[in-house]
Simulated scan of single mutants.
Amino acid sequence: MAEDTDIPSLVLKSLKSNPRGLTITDLSKKLHKDRNSIARCLNILKAEGKVESKTIGSAHVYWISQRIPLSAFLCFTRNMILIVDDNLNIVQANEHFIQFCNMQKEDLIGRHIIEDMIPVVSSPESVATITSTKGDHVMNEIRYSTEKNNLFFKMELTVR
């Protein structure tokens, strides 16, 4: 069984040395393992986000993933980011948005963006944009008024 535990590291090492990618058969021959073990391992690595694949003809070509984890993206951007689920409940927010709202992250997560009056996103303009979005990607200018001043934001929505 110890032999099975090193298959993922061997697969990743082989894929790193072949940036154009390899098929299951190529990996199987290169690592001297059966195709089923390699396929199972690749499915797990794909679910973990470590590899990506593309179907070319009847073969699946796998390569090392170049994606940035969402948590890293949220930390390193200067934009305010809010991630909501299908029911418009907040799933994730980055530090810039949390500071702007002057709230704790624990108090923000799970709240409904329309019912709970979250700054900027609960404004009538924002709600209209969010609820009318039919496409995959929408950009809109949003004006948000506070007691002291008017703030203008560029709102981007991506529907998944």
Rank of each mutant, 00 (worst) to 15 (best):
D6M: 09
G57I: 07
E156N: 06
P69T: 12
F97T: 02
V84T: 15
I24Y: 04
K54S: 13
C101G: 05
H112Y: 15
P119W: 06
K154L: 14
I38Q: 07
I44V: 14
Q99I: 00
L82T: 01
C75L: 10
N36S: 14
S71Y: 11
F76S: 13
H32M: 14
K134V: 05
L42H: 07
I44L: 13
N43F: 13
V120W: 03
S14M: 00
I64K: 01
R78C: 12
H112V: 09
C75N: 08
T129G: 05
S9L: 08
E3K: 12
D85H: 05
I90Q: 06
T158S: 13
N149E: 13
T55G: 11
L88Q: 04
A39N: 15
M155P: 03
I114Q: 12
P124F: 11
Q66I: 07
I68T: 10
L27P: 05
L31F: 09
N36Y: 11
T23V: 08
K54H: 09
R67I: 05
F100L: 03
S9T: 06
E141Y: 09
A39S: 15
T133Y: 00
P69C: 09
G57H: 06
H32C: 12
K13N: 11
I109L: 13
D107G: 03
T131E: 11
N43I: 10
R143P: 00
I56G: 11
N79W: 12
H96I: 04
L157V: 08
D136L: 14
K134P: 02
T25Y: 07
F153V: 06
V120I: 15
T23R: 09
S58L: 09
E147I: 08
P119N: 07
S132Y: 06
L22G: 02
I118P: 06
T158F: 13
K105G: 00
E3R: 15
I83D: 01
D86W: 02
L74F: 04
N43M: 11
V91C: 13
K13S: 12
N89D: 11
D6A: 11
E141S: 14
T55C: 14
V138M: 08
K148D: 04
K16Y: 04
E125N: 13
M103Q: 10
E141P: 01
Y144R: 08
I56A: 15
L15M: 02
N140S: 14
Q66D: 02
Q92G: 00
F97S: 00
I114S: 15
H96W: 00
V11G: 06
T77G: 05
T23Q: 07
L157C: 06
Y144N: 01
D107C: 12
A59F: 13
N79Y: 08
V120M: 09
N87C: 07
R78W: 09
S132T: 05
V121C: 10
K46Q: 15
V61L: 14
A39Y: 15
T77P: 09
H32L: 15
K30A: 15
T131D: 01
V51N: 03
